[in-house]
Amino acid sequence: MRLKVNIGNLEFKNPVFVASGTFGFGKEYSQYVDLNKLGAIMVKGLTLNPKEGNPPPRIYETPSGILNSVGLQNPGVDGFLKDELPFLKKFDTKIIVNIAGETIEEFVTMAQKLDIDGVHALELNVSCPNVKEGGMAFGVNPNSIYEITKRVKYVTDKTVIVKLTPNVADIKIYAKAAEDGGADAVSLINTITGMVVDINSKRPIFKNIFAGLSGPAVKPIALKHVYEAKKAVSIPVIGMGGISSAEDAIEFMIVGATAVAIGTYNFINPTCTMDILEGIKKYMNENNVSDINQIINSINV
């Protein structure tokens, strides 16, 4: 049974990744999951300088979902290189570093700093809804996506993935902008913007008013975006958004995802990635699928 998938110049041992922002830098989950068994770890989004993030509350549960407003709290790219990468390097998995520049120049600087052993790919975060500078402000503008991708590709030979926001009218335009800029893949979706109000105080729960929705509630929306993005580009698509089971993961692959990333569900069941991987193998066995690549983009419309 072949589980390997290729994205950019990389071969991944299987298509089950963990999504940025839901898995820290791997340490916390290493007591629950053998990290060697993951296709890739997409680490917590990094900024050029350390970032403190937003004031609490930062999380609120909704029916089948969660809203978060973390605001990219992270140790900065240098802190990552010093304190987190050495641990991650011990594992036989691919490390995809999510970077969130506040300016195009910051994306370039971070890409240069991360052009080292142990980092396999960069995921350009142009889709975080919880920061004032950069983030989704870039991601809702196809020209910015194109420009950032092009500038980063110019300074690195690493595989470059662009993480897209679903908070746009037509995802195809944004996926195409990434491809035109030279991206090796696109990943989607980041969170969907939402809000929640305390009916007694009549105030928004979150200080930033808006926050990002994730979890099983968003899965059908994510699936639709992945399906549409795949139709618009010829580069691989990494699908994510509300995946909680092998069946969910397979759905994403059928509509065109070369790999999937598990996000919020890691919080609910820290070992869910292993269950999902086993479930995919079971599906392949039962359906006489010898190569996972036969599933990718196999949808009959």
């Binding site: 922002g21 609490p56 820290p270």
Partner: peptide, 17 residues
């Protein structure tokens, strides 16, 4: 006390200033 997500230090939601 703070609202929590993962409970193990990965999600960065239960922030204490």
């Amino acid at each position: 006390e703070e609202r929590m997500g993962c409970g193990i230090g990965a999600c960065m939601t239960c922030a204490c200033k």
